[in-house]
């Protein structure tokens, strides 16, 4: 199973690279750069109050909460529009409720999108059932316009399965 998964991984990454290559060839330096980050979210108690702190993820175990951030920046001289950031959700995590309910998500590998509440998946009995946060395969954000020099970020909370 492991070897099989690895083979698929290599194949999928290759496709990704091939898909990106022609575009990169046309435009030597893409105007927009993306930077991915991850932090570990810890809830600590301070003076009797619960407080969330972000830490470098040195030790991560099932049940831990992660914050995946993607920073974007338009380094070009032209505005960009229809900016859509798509993030496949790693298999080993599930999207936390606060992100699952807020963002545009997909439960079918990125083919169709919507609010989680409007999506269904095939249940174990073969009939559709309402999708839950654990069914999310992809999450995405849309930014209408990024002005030249402007930057921003999108993020989602996830829990290690």
């Amino acid at each position: 199973m492991n070897r099989f998964a690895s083979a698929i991984t290599a194949f999928a990454l290759a496709i990704l690279a091939m898909g990106a290559a022609p575009v990169a060839a046309q435009q030597a330096t893409p105007a927009v750069t993306l930077e991915g980050l991850v932090k570990l979210e810890k809830t600590i108690e301070e003076n009797g109050k619960q407080k969330v702190v972000l830490e470098e993820p040195k030790v991560v175990v099932p049940g831990d909460k992660l914050l995946f951030t993607t920073r974007y920046r338009n380094a070009g001289t032209q505005p960009v529009d229809n900016f859509v950031v798509t993030n496949p959700v790693p298999d080993a995590v599930r999207v936390a409720d606060e992100s699952a309910l807020r963002e545009q998500v997909s439960v079918d590998g990125g083919k169709s999108w919507g609010r989680l509440a409007d999506l269904t998946v095939k249940g174990e009995d073969g009939n559709p059932r309402p999708a839950t946060a654990t069914d999310i395969t992809h999450i995405r954000w849309t930014v209408p316009v990024i002005a030249p020099g402007a930057s921003g970020m999108v993020e989602y909370h996830a829990i290690v399965r």
Binding site: F68, V80, D81, V84, V85, T86, N87
Partner: peptide, 8 residues
């Protein structure tokens, strides 16, 4: 985790 973006 890897994000991708498309834009016009």
């Amino acid at each position: 985790n890897t994000a991708s973006a498309s834009y016009g």
